[in-house]
Design a binder for these strands. Structure first.
Length: 575
RNA sequence: GACCUGGUAGCUCAGCUGGUAGAGCAUCUCCCUUUUAAGGAGAGGGUCCAGGGUUCGAACCCCUGCCAGGUCACCA
């Protein structure tokens, strides 16, 4: 081990050894009984009632202010931080002042876990604090934490802000940055509220396969993997739609799943290769019903997150209170471009797209063109939650045709803050129509569309047994959390966003400037690691002088070592 | 994938037209029983992302690469 340790890391390792030398276990096994959190104490302490007189708290030491025989420190637990007062003669019995002078003052560092017992009081300056009379080391921290401070005016000093460090070392981000935990707690509250909303209606939470032989249910590029025992390719799911509908065929009235989906596509502020989607399917409903349902669900989620149906998203104030505007797609296009595409031919739609300055190509059919116009000219305008309804049939191969117009489908997407949040259908349950739609997807695939859907024969078989009229909806949980926590990047609502793997330094051959002789010898040693000296000399093929200089140089650099043993003289690499 | 910006001490950042590295906090030493981002005084700490090039001399200029962030494209 030739780890490059910083001065501060060395100091902490030395402190660890000194603790052990003093008979203090820096990593004790036994439990430490906690009977209060800092949050409870700060919220409920009343100096007239004299409550919290036998308090036991535990957490990380986050600051230390030593003033001779007494000190102030801050302890951070899962709920927050509070100040503690530690006086030498309180934590040390009799003459032995080791616990204060050595352990607390010198060997305990910022970031160490400690357990503290004592009573709560208010200092002269008016801060509720713990008067410590017992002090125990619970776990030593070997790396220095960034020290983030907030002054009386709320200004943050030395904030830990580098996004790369924050995402790669989320644990540090969570320790030192206020508000990070809150985002993830809200995420949990949002999902719990949705779950309760569904369960209260009697819908069943289910789990369906992530490893799928056919990645169906969405137009997206899948991740591929391989199962050894079956010797078949498997895909990570891009959606769970087709499996959930099979369950509706099977007789459930409502099923839902919070699912991780995987798409092998680009990454940016709103896309992570793995992401969470909630999909729900309810029998005997249509997309109008689903709009009512979605509104109420979001109202509930917003209340759970923020205690309000209003949410601030960047510059915008968004109102999640139902009902939301419902605008057919062609109306939206007419509103924002002036073109009425109702009943127009593909050629006419293409003309309109060109006139609007869009890039179009021959492979784009009418549906794709309409979608393109909407995406470019309309989408970003919908800041307040808005249902855009009735999409062209070509764009929606799993959606039932519109009851009044068979060039359209009974589909809606919900837009919030100019971005798509949810997608829903009156589900296609006509197995013959479904087979034709899949076949159209095949044609697209043959034309070169690499995300056209595969034909899922088993799914078609299931539909042939009969699926009740059903409405289904999918919502991006990460995006919803971004909105409800006002996070500008998906990375802020994922604990561990995908990053290029970090390279950890290989300790060997760093900072070393080897000359040619040294290099010739070292190249052999890298492979052999330990080798008899005369064999090494022969393999290196150097002149007598070159050999001599090379091997001495390597020893001096500390990368190789010559050892004389009973069995002969050996050269080994020093890791 | 294209373009823009950045990578300097544990953290946040300075570093001018190139002259061989600086601050605050953290760390270490000493002094001090109630201090509020910070008690006082002093000290140590750096492969300036990596590799090449230009130059008497490079953290700085040029080239290549790595990593990250942003914008766009692709994509729900």
């Amino acid at each position: 081990m030739s780890l490059q340790l910083s001065e501060q890391e060395i100091v902490r390792r030395e402190a660890l050894d000194k603790m052990r030398a003093l008979g203090i276990n820096p990593y004790p096994a036994e439990k430490f009984d906690v009977n209060a959190t800092t949050k409870e104490v700060l919220a409920n302490f009343d100096k007239d009632k004299l409550n919290f007189q036998e308090v036991s708290i535990a957490g990380r030491m986050m600051s230390k202010r030593i003033m001779g025989k007494a000190s102030f420190a801050e302890i951070q637990d899962s709920t927050g931080r509070m100040q503690v007062y530690i006086a030498r003669d309180e934590i040390c019995d009799g003459e032995d002042k080791m616990m204060y002078n050595d352990v607390f003052k010198k060997l305990v560092d910022i970031g160490d876990f400690v357990g503290l017992k004592g009573y709560v009081f208010v200092t002269q300056v008016g801060e509720t604090s713990l008067y410590v009379n017992d002090f125990k080391v619970l776990s030593k921290s070997l790396r220095p934490l960034p020290i983030v401070k907030t002054d009386a005016d709320g200004n943050v000093h030395d904030a830990f802000t580098d996004p790369e460090l924050r995402y790669r070392q989320r644990y540090v981000d969570l320790i030192v940055n206020d508000g990070v935990k809150e985002t993830f707690i809200k995420r949990n509250r949002i999902m719990n509220a949705m779950r309760k909303f569904f369960n209260d209606k009697g819908y069943l939470e289910v789990e369906t396969p992530i490893l799928q032989p056919i990645p169906g249910g969405a137009a997206a590029r899948p991740f591929m993997t391989h199962h050894n025992a079956l010797d078949i390719p498997l895909y990570l799911r891009v959606a769970n739609e087709l499996y959930l509908k099979r369950l509706i065929v099977g007789g459930f009235d409502g099923v839902y799943e919070f699912a991780k989906d995987f798409r092998n596509e680009g990454m940016d502020r709103t896309h992570n290769p793995e992401f969470t989607v909630m999909e729900i399917y309810v029998a005997y409903k249509d997309y109008h019903w689903m709009m009512d349902f979605t509104e109420k669900m979001l109202e509930t989620a917003s209340m759970a997150a923020n205690g309000s149906t209003k949410a601030t998203i960047g510059e915008n104030e968004v109102e999640f209170k139902a009902p939301y505007a419902r605008i057919p797609m062609l109306t939206a296009i007419k509103d924002h471009t002036g073109y009425d595409l109702n009943g127009k031919s593909e050629a006419e739609v293409r003309e309109a797209a060109l006139a609007l300055g869009l890039e179009v190509d021959e492979s784009m059919g009418k549906g794709k063109l309409i979608d393109e116009i909407f995406g470019e000219k309309c989408e970003h305008n919908y800041i307040q939650p808005t249902f855009i309804t009735d999409y062209p049939v070509e764009m929606s191969p799993l959606c039932k045709k519109h009851r009044d117009d068979d060039s359209l489908t009974e589909r809606f997407e919900l837009f919030v803050n100019g971005k798509e949040l949810a997608n829903a259908y009156t589900e296609l349950n006509d197995p013959i129509d479904q087979r034709e739609r899949f076949e159209e997807q095949m044609k697209l695939s043959e034309k070169g569309d690499d995300e056209a859907m595969f034909i899922d024969q088993d799914f078609l078989r299931a539909l042939e047994y009969g699926m009740p009229p059903t409405s289904g909806m999918g919502i991006g949980i990460d995006r919803l959390c971004m909105f409800l926590t006002n996070s500008p990047s998906i990375q802020d609502v994922l604990f561990f966003p995908q990053m290029r793997p970090e390279k950890f330094d290989a300790p060997i051959q760093k900072t070393l400037e080897l000359n040619d002789n040294e290099k010739a010898i070292f190249d052999i040693l890298k492979v052999r690691e330990r080798i008899e000296i005369s064999e090494l000399k022969e393999l290196a093929g150097l002149s007598g002088k070159g050999w001599d200089k090379g091997i001495k140089g390597l020893s001096k650099h500390g990368v190789a070592k010559v050892e004389k043993t009973e069995a002969g003289v050996f050269v080994g690499v020093i890791g």
